[in-house]
Design a binder for these strands. Structure first.
Lengths: 200, 200
DNA sequence: GCGTGATTTGACCAACTGGTCAAAGCTACG
DNA sequence: CGTAGCTTTGACCAGTTGGTCAAATCACGC
């Protein structure tokens, strides 16, 4: 079954999703109102509900498309590549996502802070499977002496923490830096951290 | 002016603050209702408002007492101590706070995610001052060759990110680990990360 | 330019929200 | 005891919330 959509539908649906991302990522699901989304999207509230059946539906669609793209960089971690280069590339890609898609990062953070009520299954299923698989790859690299021995799970957590921090805690980081763009410095610092950590 | 309080006041005020911490840290300010707090505290809503003038007042009091204690570990970073030992101790203390006071960490994360509307001044003022001061201490250690050359600001950010991650993203971390306690492993991993990073 | 289906909206609703208030209940102290 | 002041609550209020609906408006192929 193919969903056909007019140009108007295309335009308004994406305006709503963009507005929803903006507001949900700041206030979380419960803290967001349909009126806020409607205003950000430049539509009336009943018009919102012509395109989406409920507030929940907007949030669900955002979360789903987020999860899809969120793990792409980890998927790309290649068993056959140069180990340290692969990991440093992963860090770079994740940091770029924090820079280019901070709202998506915050939407995810909000969901987790609330106890992940809507994506708990995904975390325990798809995510865990993927992480376990990549942890095995890293273990292989360690076994052959190409990477210093580290706990692969905590290594992955630390990459998430360090990169997402620059999106999720952006205001704090910029406040401390006096407003300067943190990303160039972050890139260099993270490179240094993981290079020294992983050198065998 | 000394505020005197009866035992009942003492007990109920702290029950409300505890309940508020529980709910605010999960749903943020806007996403939290007085009824939720009242139920968690085991009081009626009017009774809540007998002890605090408004929802805002509960939140403000929580944030203030949080900020006070949140930076204590950083204050303790001692110019005169053993450089690498001082930094590793700071990491340890911050990780212990994530383990023992995860709700406080999440309350703070929620506030920052929302753009820090209530603590922006504090971030740009007190926090920035303290961080700049400690960054100077670290720069001194680097200059005398006691610590490898790293960007001190990003070093501090990375300590915050790595330790708070275990509180703020607890459900995700445990989902991936299959429910196991992450903290012993985190402690060992973070020790390793900063030891290798900072060794001159 | 006309008609049909897509789009938009004002008016509306019940439930919930933060907050008030007067009256009732309770407690400590003389 | 008794009572003055502390504590608790049911009833209430105005504003907000997610969501509905019928009617009005619009866009597009014929």
């Amino acid at each position: 079954m193919v969903i056909t959509r007019t140009r108007i539908q295309e335009k308004n649906r994406s305006a709503i999703l963009d507005a929803g991302l903006e507001v949900f990522s700041q206030y979380g699901f419960r803290g967001t109102t349909l009126d806020q989304i409607a205003e950000a999207a430049g539509l009336s509230k009943p018009n919102l509900l012509y395109y989406f059946p409920s507030k929940e539906a907007i949030h669900t669609e955002l979360l789903e498309s987020l999860l899809e793209t969120w793990l792409d960089p980890l998927h790309a971690l290649d068993d056959g590549g140069d180990p340290i280069g692969e990991i440093l590339d992963y860090v770079r890609r994740k940091l770029e996502m924090s820079r280019d898609f901070p709202r998506e990062s915050r939407l995810f953070a909000n969901e987790i802070l609330q106890g992940a009520p809507r994506i708990d299954d995904n975390l325990r299923g798809e995510l865990k499977t993927l992480v376990d698989e990549k942890a095995q790859v890293i273990r292989g690299w360690i076994a052959t002496g190409k990477v210093a021995p580290v706990d692969p799970h905590h290594l992955i957590f630390s990459i998430w923490a360090l990169t997402q921090h620059y999106a999720d805690f952006d205001v704090q980081v910029r406040a401390v830096l006096g407003g300067a763009d943190p990303f160039p410095g972050a890139q260099a610092y993270l490179d240094q951290v993981f290079r020294t950590l992983l050198r065998p």
